[in-house]
Design a protein around this nucleic acid. Structure first.
Lengths: 130, 130
DNA sequence: ATAGGGGTTCCAGTCACAGGAAGGTCAAGA
DNA sequence: TCTTGACCTTCCTGTGACTGGAACCCCTAT
């Protein structure tokens, strides 16, 4: 049983985030008589799980579902895999979108002299005049 | 001079967004006596510029600055280029982060059988046990 | 007169927290 | 004993860039 700062150092999550996760019902640490939160090893373990899932870009709702599956010993791994695959598709789409932006922008930046003159292909590109 | 729905079709921006852009001072369309907004060609052109800049992922604040440079005939193209280059670096960083996520997640997904059994490498990965 | 398809403002909600104020708690040192 | 400082608590507000919705006004056609 440990207080919030210990969980901070164990999980790398800021105390603010840990309290927020309690707020939205992802963890429910015990309380001491003085009102302080008192985290069990299991709580800390859950939060570490959440930290890793968030680091992989899963939404809070995905995390909630993954956590439930993690705790459900009778889960089917296909349920986990479906969530992960769906997220993977979203990540891939984001990457594609960003790469398209990068390519367009990179072109414009390379076309621009970047000197003291006002003539600027970047602005022209944004203007839509080609 | 046109009303907001015309600008919607010209720029592809939803009316809500156009009103929001007025709220935050990016455009200041005239008003008719009945209170309706009355957009000039220049307003529409500005909004089209904003739509393209936003589509390239520039923040509203970047857009504000780009718009100011666009309107400033005495600008130096280096100022525009600096904003664009900085944004390019951020995009690249995002891409790298997402690709790292994708790689990790893709590994896990491929390791997972995705059947009715509870054993799941994805959950194990999130657990941190390798 | 009414119906519909415009337009307007304003307020709340989104997502996942972060910042900060105001105050209670605890252990150590003077 | 008093104080100091580190820790903890709750609650409220703000973030970015909108989106949804309510309540209401305006204009034209039937």
């Amino acid at each position: 049983m440990m207080n919030i700062s210990e969980v901070e150092t164990r999980t790398g999550l800021p105390a603010k985030t840990i309290r927020y996760y309690e707020d939205i019902g992802l963890v429910t640490p015990a309380r001491r008589t003085n009102g302080y939160r008192d985290f069990s090893d299991k709580d800390a373990h859950k939060l570490a799980f959440l930290a890793r899932a968030r680091a992989l870009g899963f939404s809070i709702e995905d995390c909630r579902n993954l956590l439930a599956l993690w705790e459900d010993q009778t889960r089917a791994s296909s349920d986990v895999r479906e969530i992960a695959k769906h997220h993977l598709v979203e990540i891939e789409a984001k990457i594609q979108g960003l790469m398209a932006m990068r390519d367009t922008l990179s072109d414009l930046v390379h076309q621009c002299a970047g000197d003291s003159r006002p003539d600027c292909p970047i602005l022209k590109g944004l203007e839509g005049s080609q």
